[in-house]
Design a protein around this nucleic acid. Structure first.
Lengths: 146, 146
DNA sequence: TATTGTTATACTCTATAACTATA
DNA sequence: TATAGTTATAGAGTATAACAATA
């Protein structure tokens, strides 16, 4: 019996996690679309904020193939959002960074996304928001989840 | 001052929600890929479980254009996962359903996804899992979030 | 030889516009 | 006229394989 109760709980949590993930993804996708960006370009913007990784590092961050990221950065460069710089030390590697316009866009997007998620977040009192944040932090902790 | 504290809390929660969403999406994408499915096909499978909607209803559920769903179901049908049936009452509308193979696949996927998320979920004791589930349920509640 | 990045290729996903058939 | 679905088209996202340049 206890086993059944535990199983049910676990399923409920998994379900809630997946539903939340879809809900948040929908919000992010719409926010990006308002600026003619795909979800992938939005993620790229987020990863590149304050960083200047090599192409291979960016690919690893995004969980994408290097060839995919080549095309991604091609299109971002064409739109004036990203920039490629050759490394002085290693003639093979290329560093990617955001343009000033892209940084401004990223700031706007963060604000917009906050406003879009507010109706959800506002359903919790401040105490519960803190509790939820703490629980999620533990969930995300040292996660080598595959 | 209180204002600053509240703002920081809100940002932390938004960040955690987005990070969690990406982490869960990565797990779902990998689980789908193991069966040669895209994330979209996985969602389609989930929506169609136990339902037999019209094309337009499925499109609304997935937040996609009707033409997109036409192609989606074309490919699913070609792979023996979905089936189209004409409505007797309305000669225009078409109902979509899963094949027996697709239902079996969906069951397997749910189990796999559960196992993939277990390392994350197991970081919480049963009590905390229940608390988290309750908080997420409230977040997802009557959400007309855009 | 191994690694970094790109290119060529092939598919899926996606929306817009135009169309057909039904209502 | 309006609605349900499809098709044609165009472009983004994606991975695999083959390649050039560098290490």
């Amino acid at each position: 019996m206890t086993e059944t109760i535990e199983d049910t709980d676990a399923v409920d949590l998994l379900d809630a996690l997946v539903q939340l993930s879809f809900a948040v993804t929908a919000v992010l996708t719409k926010a990006a679309a308002r600026h003619d960006l795909s979800l992938t370009q939005l993620r790229m913007l987020g990863v590149l904020r304050g960083r200047e990784p090599k192409m291979a590092e960016l690919a690893a961050f995004l969980g994408l193939d290097r060839s995919t990221v080549s095309g991604l950065i091609d299109r971002a460069e064409r739109r004036g959002l990203a920039r490629r710089t050759g490394s002085p030390d290693d003639g093979r590697s290329v560093r990617v960074s955001l343009t000033a316009a892209a940084n401004r866009l990223a700031v706007d997007l963060v604000a917009e996304i906050g406003r879009s998620l507010a109706p959800m977040v506002d359903r919790l009192a401040q105490d519960d928001r803190r509790r939820l944040t703490a629980l999620l932090a533990r969930l995300l902790g040292p996660l080598p989840a595959a």
